[in-house]
Design a protein around this nucleic acid. Sequence first.
DNA 1: GAGTGGTCTAGACCACGGT
DNA 2: CCGTGGTCTAGACCACTCT
Lengths: 253, 253
Amino acid sequence: MGTTQLESVPEPKYWHLKTVLTEALDSEFSVGEILPNERDLAARFGVARATLRQALEQLELEGRLQRRRGVGTTVAPPRVGVAVGSEQHIWPGAGDDAWQPVDCDQSAPPAAVAAALETASGETVHIVRRSRMSHGQLVATELLYVPAASVPDLTGIDAPSGPARARAVLRELQRHELEGQDRAVELGSARADDAKDLDRLPGAPVLVVTTRFFAGGRTAALSVATYRADTCRLTFGDSPDVEIHHDPEQRAS
Amino acid sequence: MGTTQLESVPEPKYWHLKTVLTEALDSEFSVGEILPNERDLAARFGVARATLRQALEQLELEGRLQRRRGVGTTVAPPRVGVAVGSEQHIWPGAGDDAWQPVDCDQSAPPAAVAAALETASGETVHIVRRSRMSHGQLVATELLYVPAASVPDLTGIDAPSGPARARAVLRELQRHELEGQDRAVELGSARADDAKDLDRLPGAPVLVVTTRFFAGGRTAALSVATYRADTCRLTFGDSPDVEIHHDPEQRAS
DNA sequence: GAGTGGTCTAGACCACGGT
DNA sequence: CCGTGGTCTAGACCACTCT
């Protein structure tokens, strides 16, 4: 029976939609502009709202759109380059490294962190919370795990918690000679508390940067930094002002 | 009327579901094991399939699960550490850098790439395709853009395309002194062709690593590498064998 | 062919941000 | 209050893989 299958590989609707919307964003919209609401857009393209949302989700993931409940969908500015690694290794808190101490307490770290720090199971460590601003926006939160052994002279400090104590821990840390560090970047989803700080919903995609700091032959500190994946481009090296947009599907002559 | 709202902030079902599944994965499943199918799982938890899928999607994004159409959902192995940046700057193709030349052709690059290379609009460049294996799996594909000016002595090469020409371009590139390089990492979604290479669906989350190579006072080459975000942890530094799992929600004492 | 995950629909209600 | 995006449902059909 008439199986007129010209389309041997039918492209999913949401994928095609995404392409169309991308082109529209490139040509007809400017940064900050508000798009029509999802119900109208869906109707305009003749698809169900869920299908439209699948396309919007991808565009948001790629940093092209920004959606906010109760407000609407807007065209996002280009991703901001955030310097994550320079060539020289330095302690967190040294120099002016764009991070702002927020809080500090002392408790048992997650098992994986304890393993990396080679602390005993159940042993508490200092946990410094910091946050990072860029272009007037909070782009990252960090948990810095510091074993008590790395900051032995912290006893005289009165502040039991808060930013003051955070600064004290960072200051003590810098008394060691930093012997090396290494970093890893991976994709994650925002925990509830990070999501709140970053003004995103829980589960939002984030880039997790894990840094180990070595001193005295041990891992003296471990940093787990969580960057908004939608708005950030992590730069390594000395010129954070690149801008290669990963714009899809074109190699034509 | 009886508004017994104990839950002032009702957690979304898919979020709770994700937590439950994460714990189950940690305690009751081992790597490679197959989960029950989505319809059964949804029924077991008393939710619609779409809701269950929302939880599974996040777990796959976090690298905990692997789903394949026609096969099923399996427990994923821990992410593999992939060394992306070592301290010394080297040309692509120099040493044994885990990349395998696949193909090479010559055409006009996307506008953003042309801008970074400072080539004229419409000017063609060499485009070397390479792929990278790790642990028996293809984990990344790369497009390396090389302006003709960077490889002036390429005329004598007979192979117009294919791996042989790719190797020739890389070899010519290494005749310059590399003056510097910088990198950026950002989240993207797989283009159709990359998705096919990486054995993923189009739109799958990927980590895009953009590297600029400087020589002769110019950007002599530009590499855009696309890594599977679900299976890869990008490492910068000298010890790629870390393993900090970003396991959520625990800072209890 | 049977069973899997992937796509899509047409609805409903909820949480949030502004007015 | 209204309008927005976020969550959820109960179905349907499709594309794929394996046997």
